[in-house]
Nucleic acid binder design. Structure first.
Lengths: 234, 234
DNA sequence: CCTGGCTCTCAGGAAACGTTCAGCCGATGC
DNA sequence: GCATCGGCTGAACGTTTCCTGAGAGCCAGG
């Protein structure tokens, strides 16, 4: 739901679990990407050959061949095609092996924010896309994605990982109302079973750290959600 | 409510409850869409293959296969076919969590306004239809759907969710007379049992917030309904 | 083993919201 | 001019929604 006037890039999502595939492809499309999906390695290689995606999101565990093999084939095809791996959390040192072939990886269960951030980072690196800013700014709030750091009025603020992801999501969507469900779906892992109460708690934490003074940035819209609004548009 | 010289898009509505199916298809047709309906997943896939709708409105709970499965089949057919899901409110549904992410879902019981807004939003995103504006404007009244915000003469106005939906309905139908029954049907959830008195109350609230000064925008037509009319065309 | 930070749950209280209702007012029709 | 009807609006109610403090469970580091 972000940038919309143009296609940011063409992606190929490869995963054998249909719901993960759907989850990813649907929300990547919403974020402005053109997305194709494949369910196994053979299909992946086939599609990649045909459509030449700008990036491949690739599950490590596939029914026919494993992710590394697929990545190898992709590499052989030439025309650099960066790969973002999806790995299970427990797999202890899949990661190490994988990272040599992959440009980055995300562990399952992931949150959409994580995946999106990684995809953007990889694209930025590989095509030197600098129109996707690393530094977000709203009012006197500043957030550096790469440094994972936040400033309020020039002063650095310490945020926990979740607080950071939440604020990041808010800042990417400045001016747009975000429902609690939406926030939950983007910031929390997809397998999170709890209810939207957490979101309230974390909004509360965030406010305490970065939004105590007037003019307020994070606004509650009862029965609808929250918005991060730059000042003066009040 | 209708824009009507042309068909906005071709839709496929899939729900096993006949009354919901009828409710939706009738009012979507009135809004200028071309609508086909299916009662279960099998039928849905069949029809979708044949008529290639621009968007599918899909109930998650179907007698034969669930929404995920259907969506998967649709996706496999190629030619991106966005899906708007209908889900029960109860929330703690595992299946649903995945769908929600897509962000294009509406919970039952819904109001027609909600469904229409979502459909338009999805179509806008997927086909880059920017002729359906996000920002509505009538006189010195301005409404931003995404930001869920309203301005009167440049000044921001706080509206409750229902007030907002009502005003939105008025603005989409500028210049058209809306009966109280019609308003009730579109703005309130379809299972609302109360009488049209609420509408009067809310029109009153709205007027107090955005229509206190001359020239008046919201006019009462005794025994008929209300109209939102731009100034000077009086 | 203890400590501290982080995440999540829960519950109390406060405010906003939706709905109903009754009394009033203006318009309409006789 | 009068009676009637429909619409307006303030007050009141129960309900929902949100905020926040307190605390339990968990993990990592010391």
């Amino acid at each position: 739901m972000d940038v919309l006037d143009r296609v940011e890039a063409r992606l190929l999502v490869v995963d054998d679990e249909p719901n993960i595939r759907e989850l990813l492809s649907a929300s990547l499309r919403l974020s402005g990407f053109e997305v194709m999906t494949a369910a196994d390695g053979r299909e992946a290689v086939q599609f990649a050959e045909r459509i030449r995606p700008d990036l491949v999101v690739l599950d490590v565990m596939l029914p026919d061949m494993d992710g590394f093999a697929v990545a190898g084939r992709l590499r052989e095809m030439g025309g650099q095609m960066p790969v973002l791996f999806l790995t299970a959390r427990d797999g202890t040192d899949d990661k190490v092996t994988g990272l040599k072939v992959a440009d980055d990886y995300v562990t399952k269960p992931f949150s959409l924010e994580e995946v999106l951030a990684r995809i953007r980072a990889v694209l930025r690196r590989t095509r030197g896309d600098l129109d996707l800013p690393v530094r977000l700014r709203v009012g006197d709030l500043e957030l550096d994605e790469e440094a994972h750091q936040v400033w309020k009025g020039g002063a650095m603020v310490r945020l926990s990982p979740t607080e950071f992801k939440l604020l990041h999501y808010f800042m990417i969507n400045t001016g747009r109302v975000l429902s609690k469900a939406q926030i939950l779906d983007h910031v929390w892992n997809y397998d999170f079973g709890g209810d939207a109460g957490v979101v309230e708690s974390y909004v509360s934490y965030l406010r305490r750290k970065i939004d105590t003074a007037e003019p307020r940035l994070i606004h509650t819209l009862r029965g609808v959600g929250y918005v991060l609004r730059p000042p003066q548009s009040d």
